[in-house]
């Protein structure tokens, strides 16, 4: 009996917590469908009398959210693919080769894990300016591509593939690059998916760097575009929330579809913080 009461209290607290976690989203969605007087009523009203779907049309007219979405997909997608390519190649070299400076280079990889990326923005912005990469996609993407942590993590996985396979492949005349593509990659699908998902989410939500580099709508990702939209509609909270909902929606759908892989990936490799 006592156990049951304990269970019920836990469940009630969990539901209450879940409600608090969801509340900003529920309020955001509800407010995006309100008229302005409803949205600024005192005391606040939770739900609109009739949902104003027109708010979304109006939001889409003020700011090119479709373009922002395209930019976000482009930036996060390309950055993820390139990060994976750089990570896999470097980790592979650390796994199968011996070479001069290996220890030093591997140590450098580990050392960069400790450097907060916020430290780098000053000089990187200066570098980008000198390369005339301000307000370009390569300016947003390229400085973020190499991660010592992921190289280290990928190598840990590569090291677990038995060497017999490599020797057998060599006997059959398989080159190193082909061995990577045909054996190593398929055998480490999960690790690659983990790194890919983590990179994609962090790229999608990255903020301070794209904020500095992007100067016009054709290079703004969703979060940055949203801030410009906010300034454009000033205090029209219902429109602001329509914009915020538009920005949150794609990632939310992506999350709900891949939630298992995402949660697993974050608990496995998310310690980077």
């Amino acid at each position: 009996m006592q156990r049951r009461i304990g269970q019920s209290i836990k469940l009630i607290l969990l539901i209450l917590g879940a409600f608090l976690m969801m509340f900003p989203f529920i309020w955001m969605l509800a407010t995006s469908l309100k008229t302005l007087p409803e949205a600024t009523a005192i005391p606040p009203i939770m739900f609109p009398e009739t949902p104003q779907f027109g708010n979304y049309l109006e939001a889409l007219q003020v700011a090119p959210f479709g373009l922002y979405l395209r930019n976000s997909i482009l930036v996060a997608g390309i950055a993820t693919l390139l990060t994976l390519a750089l990570t896999v190649l470097a980790a592979y070299a650390f796994t199968i080769y011996e070479f001069r400076g290996k220890t030093v280079m591997f140590f450098l990889c580990l050392a960069t894990m400790m450097i907060p990326s916020e430290l780098l923005i000053i000089q990187n912005f200066i570098t980008i300016s000198k390369l005339h990469w301000v307000n370009t996609f390569q300016g947003i993407i390229i400085p973020t591509l190499a991660s010592g942590f992921y190289i280290y993590m990928m190598r840990e996985y590569f090291m677990q593939i038995p060497s017999v396979l490599y020797k057998a492949a060599k006997v059959d005349g398989c080159g190193d690059f082909r061995y990577l593509m045909r054996i190593m990659l398929p055998m480490n699908k999960n690790a690659i998916a983990t790194i890919g998902i983590l990179t994609f989410i962090s790229q999608w939500n990255s903020f301070i760097w794209p904020l500095m580099v992007a100067k016009d709508d054709s290079h703004r990702v969703m979060a940055i575009g949203l801030l410009h939209f906010r300034d454009a509609v000033s205090s029209q909270v219902n429109l602001q929330m329509a914009g915020a909902t538009i920005v949150i929606l794609p990632m939310l759908i992506f999350y709900l579809v891949f939630r298992k892989q995402i949660i697993e990936g974050v608990s496995r490799g998310g310690i980077k913080g």
Binding site: W204, N205, A223, L226, R230, Q240, I262
Partner: peptide, 17 residues
């Protein structure tokens, strides 16, 4: 699933809320 949502959603968008 519910408790994890804030991790994936944009801090900027939620900040507006």
């Amino acid at each position: 699933t519910i408790y994890f949502i804030p991790y994936v959603t944009s801090t900027i968008a939620i900040g507006l809320a």
